[in-house]
Design a protein around this nucleic acid. Structure first.
Lengths: 140, 140
DNA sequence: AGTCAATATTTGATTGAGTCAAATAATCTT
DNA sequence: AAGATTATTTGACTCAATCAAATATTGACT
């Protein structure tokens, strides 16, 4: 029995998903490289909408908390954020400095400008894509 | 001016693409973990349809050639492939051993069984997705 | 008040996936 | 035959991220 076309194509489709993601990531990396910024750090800056506690950031980035500690070290060293204990003094609250807010705005613009997702698809296509990918992400 | 809905959603869509890819990769990793197999090595095995020269494999996996050297070392050490000089004696040709072919078949089955892309989308949805992602991947 | 469990962050060590540069070997061009 | 090109290999290294253990604080219970 020859392999069903569905099976052959599904593997190609899986690699296409991965390649699209690599494209998204490289768009992102290229956009932030201009600012001499490692992508994970840029991601953290863009997620800091309001002062956030570190564990929360770890959840959003779905990574280990200890990794956030190191990103935060870097942000503070660059003068882009401050770390201050919260009301509950176990937690540390990260807050962007004015320089951080400033950079965040520039990053957002650059990232959006470089985004193939934005540039290559119409709004309609974008929402179709969103539906399909949600199906994958939310699969059991 | 409030940010246009398009701009807000495009960043979400970008992260959705990345999350879908992470899902695809973790499906893959879970499928091959049963065989005590690092994902990149499994990927190489699945790409070895016919005897292939190493540089070619590097192109397919879009990675540095030297990385293929190390994967090949591992495959040979595990008795899954042999390395033999080709007609052009600069090149080394990788060929799956019977054990390698055997494992490859099992890997293919397991990977396809675990694939959310297969399991969560209808055939029609899969081809729609393919069109949209190609648009991203082939963007200028 | 005092103890015990749970939560948040930090540090040091380590892993995995890969790159880069230089070395070697073989082939092609002239 | 010389020099440029191509394929692979090796050693050193980077980057993103995790794990395990340590520390500090809080909450719950008695």
């Amino acid at each position: 029995m020859t392999p069903s076309p569905t099976q052959a194509n599904s593997s190609e489709l899986a690699t296409l998903v991965v390649r699209a993601s690599e494209r998204v990531k490289s768009d992102f990396a290229r956009a932030v490289a201009v600012f001499d910024f490692p992508p994970p750090l840029a991601r953290a800056v863009l997620l800091l909408d309001q002062p956030a506690q570190m564990g929360c950031l770890a959840t959003q980035m779905s990574c280990d908390q200890s990794y956030i500690t190191r990103l935060a070290d870097d942000l503070v060293k660059r003068g882009l954020a401050t770390r201050a204990p919260g009301a509950d003094r176990r937690v540390q609250v990260l807050t962007l400095t004015p320089a951080g807010e400033d950079l965040k705005a520039k990053l957002a613009t650059a990232v959006s400008r470089e985004s193939s997702v934005v540039n290559a698809l119409t709004a309609t296509q974008q929402s179709e894509l969103s539906v399909l990918l949600s199906g994958i992400v939310n699969a059991p």
